[in-house]
Design a protein around this nucleic acid. Structure first.
Length: 556
RNA sequence: GGAGUCGUAGUUCAGUUGGUUAGAACGCCAGCCUGUCACGUUGGAGGUCGCGGGUUCGAGUCCCGUCGGCUCCGCCA
């Protein structure tokens, strides 16, 4: 029979007692994290969301409680009454915030017992932790772990900080519907059958895209929402089908204003949540530069190892694979792994397999040293290898890793390899936060398979004013269609440590430009009906709207 | 949709060339223990080796199929 709690109240959490409370009579409640039985007395680590306190039950001073303690097992829920006592000099535990004291127990109430756990909550070393599917099955147990408690609380703090920021900046929090007509976005819709309209379905929002634009047309001027979003796409380690993002939009805005709010919000949240100071003005980089230097539109700036172009050096080469790559408009680039000339054949093979996943045909290498060796030595000759080493900036002891191919393949494979090598060699400063705004995303992406241009963003994204003429020509003159690939958009991302943590764009506010954009291929793809409500609404009240749509939760 | 990889005790894993009774650590159970905090110590329980089929005198191990997990590519405008 379990004990009755009655009207007994906690006096402290398990994380707050210190030397200053010594002598006080206290009541703690929580979960038995650990029991250490010494026969005549028993130590119990009592845990709640605030921390752990050691309580000690002695047979000598509390016979009944001591007998009860004998029966305690992991994760029993108990209440203890007792007196805070200073620990002896040698018996303190620096690892616990409460380690200077312990509670001498006079009475124990067993509020609930517990079955043997299906997995251990606390184990030495994360590699011994049960697999995630096991932990998810018993999510309520997993969530007791201090690490997850911390994550959940961090999230709560972040959300509070977001509301705090936008409220003071004059943004209005507005909820939008979850059960909707499908709106044109990129992902697959989750779908809910309707009871009333048999055979028809609601779509769940992939983001509140259209709805927030309507709030601008309605005159709310500045909107934000902590919005649930649903996308029925395949999962990844850091991707879920159902997630939360900060969604915001403002009227009469240009890009600088959007950057300002984006930076301001992140800086506020990082300060509030982690005490982390990000630069007031984040560094910026164009999309083209990011791709060129890092092979990624979300570069991780915590380490160097930039991509170096060797195409010029290799122009006119006899080596057929390289020659054909350059001839067909591809490129040859490399990264330099500092001091890694000692990589084994096996390691290089692994890296080659790695880049092949991104479409690279092979991974060439040069080991720089007193006796420079290379997979290309026979085909290029010693002199050319020496020139490549010089161009790459490698010095003795370094390893040069080279990929040749289509530009997109070279960027994807070397961009990923850069991160892979950094991880393997532990080159990443885990305490650093390196934010970046990536600007001037392209309006269209070139599909190399079909030789077609498809929208890189949503169909309301404005082209850059400087590229408007080019855009007009490209759309109206069939023979100039390829110019679409050169048109840049007023679209941007916020990147921190290689994670895309926000993105957005300035909306088209001119009717004729919008028409051009649809003509460029959007409407055919998404269907005019899908955006009819938006177009109708906009015609009744044209405003210039600027946007920063999906700002997903920053990785903390 | 595709590729790789892993399924062995409650958990994390090892298991040789196919060969007797499948092991370790942690956890669990029982005893002992006056200062532990990864307590110690003695003893014990715990296994349909994911599932199905095949090869073999003999399969955790080899082959085929199947199911599941994880990671990645595609996808996520």
């Amino acid at each position: 029979m379990l004990d009755v709690l009655g009207t007994l109240e906690r006096t402290h959490s398990c994380g707050e007692l210190r030397e200053s409370e010594v002598g006080q009579h206290v009541v703690l409640m929580g979960w038995v994290a650990k029991k250490r039985d010494f026969g005549v007395f028993t130590f119990i680590d009592l845990r709640d969301r605030d921390g752990v306190t050691q309580v000690v039950v002695s047979e000598e001073t509390a016979k009944e409680a001591h007998a009860k303690a004998k029966n305690l097992r992991g994760e029993f829920v108990i209440a203890v009454k007792g007196e805070v006592a200073l620990r002896d000099e040698g018996a303190r535990n620096a690892k616990l915030a409460t380690g200077g004291i312990e509670v001498k127990v006079s009475e124990i109430l067993i509020l609930n017992d517990a079955n043997v756990l299906p997995f251990q909550l606390e184990v030495a070393g994360s590699e011994n932790l049960a697999a995630e599917d096991t932990r998810l099955k018993y999510r309520y147990l997993d969530l007791r772990r201090p690490q997850l408690q911390h994550n959940i609380r961090t999230r709560a703090k972040a959300v509070a900080a977001i509301r705090e920021y936008f409220d003071t900046r004059g943004f209005i929090e507005i909820e939008t519907p979850i059960l909707l007509k499908s709106t044109p976005e990129g992902a697959r819709d989750f779908v809910v059958p309707s009871r009333i309209h048999t055979g028809k379905f609601f779509a769940l929002p992939q983001s509140p895209q259209i709805l927030k634009q309507l709030t601008m047309i309605s005159g709310f001027d500045k909107y934000y929402q902590i919005a649930r979003c649903f996308r029925d796409e395949d999962l990844r380690a850091d991707r879920q089908p159902e997630f939360t993002q900060l969604d915001m939009e403002m009227s009469f805005a240009h890009q600088e204003m959007a950057y300002r709010e984006m930076q301001g919000m992140f800086n506020h949240v990082f300060t509030k949540v982690g005490g982390i100071e990000l630069p007031a003005a984040w560094p910026r980089m164009t999309h083209a530069e990011a791709m060129r230097r890092y092979g990624s539109d979300k570069p991780d700036l915590r380490f160097e190892m930039e991509l170096v172009d060797l195409s010029g050096e290799l122009a006119g080469t006899d080596f057929a694979p390289f020659a054909s790559v350059l001839e067909s408009g591809g490129e040859i680039k490399c990264i330099v792994a500092k001091g890694k000339a000692d990589y084994s054949r096996k390691q290089l093979d692994e890296l080659q397999d790695f880049v092949k996943r991104y479409g690279a045909g092979a991974l060439a290498w040069i080991k720089v040293g007193d006796e420079t060796t290379s997979s290309l030595l026979k085909v290029l000759g010693e002199e050319k290898i020496g020139q490549l080493v010089t161009s790459s900036g490698a010095v003795s002891g370094d390893l040069v890793l080279i990929v040749a191919g289509r530009k997109s393949v070279v960027a994807a494979s070397l961009g990923a390899l850069r991160i892979e090598v950094a991880k393997r060699e532990d080159l990443i400063d885990r305490t650093a936060y390196k934010p970046l705004i990536v600007t001037e995303f392209p309006m269209f992406e070139h599909d190399e398979e079909t030789d077609r241009y498809t929208a890189a963003h949503h169909p309301f994204t404005s082209p850059m004013d400087e590229d408007l003429e080019k855009f007009t020509t490209a759309v109206n003159d069939e023979s100039q269609h390829h110019l679409l690939g050169e048109v840049r958009a007023k679209a941007y991302d916020a990147v921190i440590n290689g994670y895309e943590c926000a993105g957005g764009s300035i909306r088209i506010h001119q009717k004729d430009v919008q028409a051009l954009n649809f003509k460029a291929g959007h409407v055919a793809r998404i269907g005019a009906d899908a955006v009819r409500i938006f177009l109708d609404a906009r015609n009744s009240a044209r405003r210039r709207t600027a946007v920063s749509p999906p700002a997903s939760n920053a990785p903390a």
